[in-house]
Design a protein around this nucleic acid. Structure first.
Lengths: 154, 154
DNA sequence: ATAGTTGCAAAACCTTTGCAGTTAA
DNA sequence: TTAACTGCAAAGGTTTTGCAACTAT
């Protein structure tokens, strides 16, 4: 039963709880692989790619299962997908999952998450203006981070 | 010489001119393949993937050359790259190239470009706050377009 | 002559899919 | 028992790279 899995994974947060509920209520069954993906995602401060997740789980679960879990979670809007440098990255979304955007340093590859409520508001308004029923959005800034700027132009 | 190529391609806009200048001034030589990519890009109202470009040029130039041209142009900040549904799309950027964002309909795949000066301002401010020297940014909205909304929930 | 450009084919990635076995409910 | 879940291996896409020939300067 779900409780057992919760204990096994050792992770329970508002987001994992919400995710597990929604999975069950949409006809999904508890499964070890997906549960580990959920648990891992809930512990991240920022997004991970499928390959990242596979590696951090010590390759104990199949890569295909990671992709399938992410696909399911994305469809249920439990995680949001961000395209970073040609690869898809995922992070918790919806209730309990904090929403933010990303800035990537083109020099060192560093990825900084950031929040901006005003930006959110403006994005929603843009969606309305276009007549779109928005499900998600992602914003990625590209540039040079403070560290690299210090080194290259002192 | 450059003039000849300009005549051959038959395309001259503020953006193509700027691009050709910048290419030369950064040590690049005129080449048929890249010139055709530049000419094609300048005629688009929205972004194209490398494969799109290859197809629209009737496969007369190698796919690898398209990728290489796009890579060069991106590095010189003459085109901006947007990740759309797992594939990279490119469009003119910088002087003469108009900047906009994209909304994608998850149902029909339609892609709507849109502009929003206020959003630009806010994004720039976010960059400053993070201490980033911004080179580019891309925002993609995901949702259901007005057309699809009409059909599915009348 | 030098160094950038190109096309082709091969390789490297990321992601999806088919299938057979396993497992939750 | 049924339908979901999983791992593996194969397949499908996109993008990159090695290499030899070509060409603008």
């Amino acid at each position: 039963m779900g409780t057992v899995l919760t204990i096994i994974s050792g992770v329970s947060t508002p987001w994992t709880d919400h995710a597990r509920e929604r999975l069950v209520s949409s006809g999904h069954r508890a499964g070890g692989a997906r549960e580990r993906v959920v648990a891992l995602l809930s512990e991240q401060r920022c997004c991970l790619s499928a390959q990242d997740i596979h590696a951090r789980l010590d390759r104990e679960i199949g890569l295909a299962s990671v992709y399938r879990a992410l696909d399911t979670l994305t469809r249920l809007q439990l995680v949001s997908r961000v395209d970073v440098e040609g690869t898809a990255c995922y992070e918790p979304a919806g209730p309990g999952g904090d929403h933010h955007h990303h800035a990537i340093c083109g020099d060192c590859g560093r990825l900084d998450p950031f929040e901006d409520p005003e930006l959110e508001r403006l994005i929603d308004r843009a969606g309305e203006r276009l007549g779109y029923a928005l499900r998600a959005h992602d914003l990625v800034l590209h540039g040079r981070c403070p560290e690299c700027a210090r080194v290259h132009s002192p």
